[in-house]
Design a protein around this nucleic acid. Structure first.
Length: 203
DNA sequence: CGGCCGATTATCT
DNA sequence: GATAATCGGCCGG
């Protein structure tokens, strides 16, 4: 189980360490599990790409709270996005979960998200995986350290540093430099994940 | 493949 | 009233 001090770090340190962890979801009697394969860090009021750049509001207040909670918000009039709160209380920071590799319950995910099911385009986006997992605003503020709850995180794969690629965050629109180009996005390929799963199963 | 564009509404100014 | 940490469809090459 992941402990509080795992989450109580700045988002740019937590985000790469979340690659390889598993997100587990109880939904409509099904158990859905996926390996996190892409993340982005949003750190502090000084980060002009972070929702907290305007200070504390009703929407972003969960980011100001305890680490290890889910910060879930609605955007573009139709999408829910899942973040994991990072760092200390009163320091707004979070890690956006952008992609998941399905490990269990893929058939149930496909019912939630039939579009292009089982293709490489299936779960490669922050709003796609929340659809597949049936995640919405009702889980905002939920503690992700409670194993067995509706939504939680567990250890899963050990992903070596050299398999994790960093690059700039995406979809930031008019965000000024240097925030626009900071390499605060991390990912591992599904091919590498498949190989690591096969290797680590033997042990 | 890559680029452009409309959908659709909670949230903030 | 404007904007948005996106997605999927449609177009051209």
């Amino acid at each position: 189980m992941l402990k509080a001090d795992f989450f109580e770090r700045p988002a740019p340190l937590l985000a790469p360490d979340l690659i390889g962890k598993a997100l587990a979801r109880r939904h409509n009697g099904n158990m859905l599990v996926g390996i996190i394969t892409e993340t982005e860090a949003y750190q502090g009021q000084e980060d002009l790409a972070c929702h907290a750049r305007v200070g504390k509001t009703k929407r972003n207040q969960v980011m100001y709270g305890e680490a290890g909670k889910a910060y879930i918000y609605f955007t573009y009039g139709m999408h829910w996005l899942l973040n994991i709160v990072a760092d200390q209380v009163d320091t707004p920071a979070a890690v956006l979960i952008r992609e998941i590799f399905p490990l269990a319950g893929a058939e149930a995910m496909a019912l939630n998200r039939p579009h292009l099911a089982y293709s490489s385009q299936w779960l490669n986006g922050p709003a796609k995986l929340t659809q597949a997992f049936g995640i919405d605003g009702s889980l905002n503020g939920h503690d992700l350290q409670e194993k067995g709850s509706e939504l939680y995180l567990v250890e899963a794969l050990v992903v070596p540093q050299d398999k994790i690629k960093a690059s700039p965050r995406v979809g930031l629109g008019n965000t000024p430099e240097p925030w626009l180009s900071l390499p605060w996005r991390w990912e591992v390929s599904w091919q590498d994940v498949k190989e690591l799963i096969a290797e680590q199963k033997k042990e």
